[in-house]
Amino acid sequence: MSDGIEVEQIVESKPRRMPLATSLDKDAIREAYEDVRSDLTDTEWAVFKFDGPQIIVHGRGQCFEEFREQFGDAERAFGYIRIQMGDEMSKRKKFIFLTWIGQEVGVIQRAKMSTDKSLIKDVLNNFAVELQAGVEAELDIELFRGALNRAGGANYGTGIRDN
C-alpha cells in the first residue's frame, strides 16, 4: 500500500490429513486367538485385517489353503496359525504369528506396520515363530514347518511308525 503499511497476505490452505492412530477390536481378536489355541475347537487359523484405522478379525478356519487365500497384494494383515508338529511318539501344536505386507502396499502403510504389529502382539502373545511374508509363494506349509523345526531344536523320528 502507498501509506507505508505492510499488508500480510493470509493464504488459506487445507489442513494436512494425518493418518489416524490404529486401534484394535481387542475382545474379538482375543476371542479368535483363544479359539485357535483351544484344543476343544477345530479352528486352526485366524486372520486380522484393517478396517480403516482399526484391526479386526477378518476370518477363521481349518484348512491351510483357506488361510493362504486370505492375503492380497494390496493388503496388510496379520495371521495366527496352529500347526501340528512332532513325530510318531510326540505330537504337539505350535503357533506362528505372521505379518503380511502385500507387494502393492505403499511406503507409508509399510512403515506403519511395525507400530501396528506391536499393538496386535499385545493380544497375540504366545507363538513359537514370527514370520513376515509379502508374496503368495511365501505362504507355504512346508516353509512354515521348516521355521518351526528350526525354532524347536532337536527333531526325532520320521512321523511314521513302523510295526
Rank of each mutant, 00 (worst) to 15 (best):
E31S: 09
A154D: 15
Q103F: 05
F48R: 11
I81E: 14
A154H: 11
M18F: 15
E69K: 14
G59T: 08
R60D: 11
I141R: 11
R16V: 11
F144Q: 13
G134F: 03
D122G: 05
L131W: 02
V123Q: 12
Q109T: 13
R16D: 11
L131C: 04
M1H: 07
N155P: 00
Y80T: 10
D73R: 12
I141K: 13
D39S: 13
G79P: 01
R76M: 09
L143K: 13
L20I: 01
F64Q: 03
R150C: 02
F127I: 01
I55H: 07
Q109M: 10
I56A: 04
G52P: 05
I81L: 12
L131M: 07
I10G: 03
E130T: 01
P15T: 03
I10L: 13
E69T: 09
I29V: 06
Q84E: 14
E88D: 05
A133F: 01
D162R: 12
H58C: 06
Q62T: 15
L98T: 01
F64G: 02
Q84N: 12
Q9H: 08
G106V: 06
A77R: 06
F71Q: 09
G61P: 01
R150N: 14
W100N: 11
E75T: 04
E8K: 04
G159D: 08
K121S: 10
D35G: 00
E34A: 04
D42S: 11
K14E: 13
K49H: 08
K94R: 11
M18I: 12
F67H: 06
M1V: 00
K26T: 05
Q62K: 15
R92A: 09
T99A: 11
E12R: 15
K49D: 04
Q103K: 14
I55N: 07
F127K: 09
Q54E: 12
K49V: 02
M85N: 14
G159A: 05
L124Q: 09
E75I: 00
E65P: 00
F144C: 08
Y80E: 11
E138V: 02
A151L: 05
D73M: 09
F95W: 08
M113T: 14
G61D: 07
N163L: 06
E65S: 04
G4P: 00
L131D: 03
I81C: 03
D122W: 00
I5H: 08
L24W: 05
R161N: 08
G61L: 05
A128K: 11
V107A: 15
F144K: 07
S13T: 15
G52K: 10
F127A: 10
M85W: 13
E138R: 13
R82I: 04
